[in-house]
Computed example of a mutant assay.
Amino acid sequence: METIQIKGPYNFDLVLDRLSIDPLNHVNLENRSVKVPLLFENEPVVAEVKATGTTLAPEFVIEGTVGRWKEKADQRLAEIFQWHVPLESIAEHFKNTDLKEIFNTHYGTPIVLDFSPYSCLVKCIIHQQLNLAFAHTLTERFVKTFGFEKDGVWFYPLPEKVATLKVEDLRELQFSGRKAEYVIGIANEIVNGNLNFEEMKNKSDEDIFKQMIKLRGVGPWTVQNFLMFGLGRLNLFPIADIGIQNALKKLYQLEAKPTLEEMETFSKGWEPYLSYASLYLWRSIE
């Protein structure tokens, strides 16, 4: 067991609330904890993160079966939960903007990454053009059919496994033919060494965008969401996202969804934290 203290604010209860939307996440709201699947050199370990502090004085207890991977697990958990991001400075940045009230309401809400860049990308592709409920259902079928479980926690199937699948295997789960091709294609890119998530951590957003947009099934929305929730980049604003459009419509009391030009106008002054603007706008309508 290990205890970690970080600088507040950090609202872990809102983190758990958002994580609990995904049925694959092992969240215990009453216990204020989540079990996190981690993979190191294809060895699965499970770490449990439990909040024991408050929003202003955040403290966490880390337990689990991390064994010899403790140091790497600690680093990865800090990355996933973005414990290094200065949320107080970000909230201060938005005090003189139209998002002030939303930031006050959801004070201390961090961006939390998907548990692996690979699962983030796969989930983005599966979720494309689907309502949220069915998107979660389809992702759950995919993981529970081809993935594996440890300590009650589900792991996404390894790329090596997915690369061996046929389109028909995913069609049986109600994937569309194209979506099945995209997921299998991504796995092949990883297996063949053309897609390396560790190398991406040292690349610019622009370079990653140029690389990923060439992949079948990957459009601007997918890349932006991957940069935000796969790699934790701070300055992404997916203007094509329906949720953000609806949040802006509500915030500015518009009769129709905002145009792209209006969205660009609204977002002036939100840089370099556009990702946080996006997150808090999503929160405002969830």
Rank of each mutant, 00 (worst) to 15 (best):
E261C: 07
F134G: 10
D205C: 13
E255M: 07
L227S: 14
L165D: 11
T145C: 15
G230M: 06
F175Q: 05
A51H: 06
P44Y: 13
D241E: 12
N96E: 15
V61C: 00
M1E: 14
F60E: 05
G185D: 10
L16E: 02
K50R: 14
H127F: 09
E206M: 14
G177W: 01
L39P: 04
R68F: 13
L248C: 11
D13H: 00
I111R: 02
K257A: 05
P258T: 07
L227D: 13
E101K: 05
L138Y: 04
I242G: 00
L281S: 06
E160I: 12
A73R: 10
Q211L: 15
G185L: 07
E172Q: 07
P44I: 12
E149F: 09
Q82E: 07
E206N: 15
L215S: 12
V153K: 09
L251C: 05
K257V: 00
L14D: 02
F197P: 08
R76P: 06
P86E: 15
R76I: 04
L29T: 06
L234W: 00
N188C: 09
I190Y: 14
T164H: 02
E48M: 12
E140A: 04
L165E: 13
V162Y: 03
R141I: 11
K50D: 06
A187E: 09
A180K: 03
K35I: 11
A277M: 10
V46F: 04
E198L: 05
K179N: 11
A57P: 03
R32E: 00
P117N: 14
W270P: 09
N225Q: 14
K201Q: 15
G147M: 00
A256S: 04
F81D: 08
A78V: 05
L195K: 05
S119R: 09
P23C: 15
V27S: 01
Q211C: 13
M1Y: 13
D22P: 06
P157V: 01
N25W: 01
L138F: 10
V162K: 01
I126C: 15
I213L: 13
Y118Q: 13
N225E: 13
Q174N: 03
K214N: 07
I62C: 03
H93V: 04
K203I: 11
P9V: 00
E48V: 12
I285W: 01
L87D: 11
L281P: 04
L56I: 00
V218D: 09
V223N: 01
L121A: 12
Q224D: 06
L138K: 08
M263Y: 14
W282F: 02
F175W: 02
F103L: 08
M263V: 13
S116R: 04
P159S: 08
G64L: 02
K210T: 15
S89T: 08
D74Q: 08
T139P: 05
F266Q: 05
A135N: 06
L281K: 03
S89H: 10
M263P: 14
R216A: 12
L24M: 14
L158P: 04
A187L: 11
R76M: 09
R216I: 05
S275Q: 03
T54N: 12
A180V: 02
T139N: 12
T52C: 12
E2S: 02
S278M: 03
L165I: 12
